[in-house]
Design a protein around this nucleic acid. Structure first.
Lengths: 191, 191
DNA sequence: TTAAGCATGTAAGGTGTTACATGATTGA
DNA sequence: TCAATCATGTAACACCTTACATGCTTAA
């Protein structure tokens, strides 16, 4: 069966242990969010679809009057997870308005190219900082023997996110300096 | 007025000179494609909307019986372009199934983490190679005095794409080696 | 008691892709 | 003549976000 984008993330999160939709959303926001996002309006319906398809199974885990359903993978769901993770990787999409602006910055007069590059640098630094915070929490969990330590592979992804964004910040800092150096050559003639 | 994602790219491409929808699509595919995609079914309707809104203006440029409309920015459209490019950058979205797989690879048995990392490395190398080809064409156009040379800012974006993907390829090559080294520690106990 | 967080969902609207549909022109 | 490329569009469907809607629990 075909798995939707959200279904893939759900199966992955349930592969480690049973969780509620709310929990999955929280995990998405604090881990895969920067490369694989999902909202409630996708997660909840998808959980129902997956349950109907027999890939996951819900158990009532209400806390008093507050409803709560915890889902876990079925045998069939675990197989689907393995199949997916072993299949060649699919989607890779990037949408970056900062890059688009820089791409066109040359035709604007005066050109804001250097400024746009600095914005990209700042954005990279911000994201890196945010991810470093998450990493600190993950490492703390690993050292103090928390019930659910993050594994090496997921920490590798986190590290990648951090280093990628740091690299990007540096790259655009340098690019901005270079773009500054040759801004509006027309001005040089005057004065 | 609010510009849609596709409208931003269209205004940008028309800022340099008048073009047809088909031409814009070709340019998108060979330049901004890796961070800002658009399909015919977005471009053509958007051109009509922008024309109705008075930001662009179409001129008939049919070649015999083959219809063709070339659009150019109006004064209002040029102002909208400048406003957009000077506004703080918006959208940044990444969707990367390879990273998602790697993130979950640790819970699969046996873990395909190293293999998934190698796939990411290969993907990075491929994209870098494709972008280098585009860069070669762009540089050739610059040197031989082609009618429409690419400007510095757009070449900066291209260079970023190339170096980013090369960096990514190297990063995952190293990560794969590290993940190999510590695969399935359980096996060590048996035998 | 009150705010923060837990918990589940729906509705509306926008965005985007793929497949379909048609036909002209140009160069090999 | 035939393939590649130029050229413009529509239909159906999938995906995704934001806002809306509701109510419980826990700790300060």
């Amino acid at each position: 069966m075909e798995l939707s984008a959200t279904a893939k993330a759900i199966l992955g999160f349930l592969a480690a242990r049973p969780r509620s939709g709310y929990e999955i959303k929280r995990l998405v926001d604090t881990s895969t969010g920067f490369f694989w996002a999902a909202s409630y309006s996708q997660i909840y319906p998808e959980l129902k679809r997956l349950a109907e398809a027999g890939l996951i199974e819900g158990t009532d885990a209400s806390q008093g009057a507050r409803p709560r359903t915890v889902y876990k993978l079925t045998r069939k769901g675990r197989a689907a997870f393995r199949d997916w993770i072993e299949a060649p990787a699919g989607v890779y999409e990037l949408r970056d308005e900062g890059l688009l602006k820089l791409f066109f910055a040359g035709v604007a007069e005066p050109s804001p190219a250097a400024e746009v590059a600095r914005e990209k640098a700042a954005q990279g630094a911000e994201v890196a900082a945010r991810l470093r915070e998450i990493e600190a929490i993950a490492h703390a969990a690993e050292t103090n023997g928390a019930p659910h330590e993050p594994d090496r592979a997921s920490l590798t992804v986190l590290r990648f996110g951090i280093e990628l964004n740091e690299w990007t910040a540096k790259w655009f800092e340098r690019a901005a300096a270079e773009l500054d150096g040759m801004a509006t050559p027309k001005i040089e003639r005057s004065s």
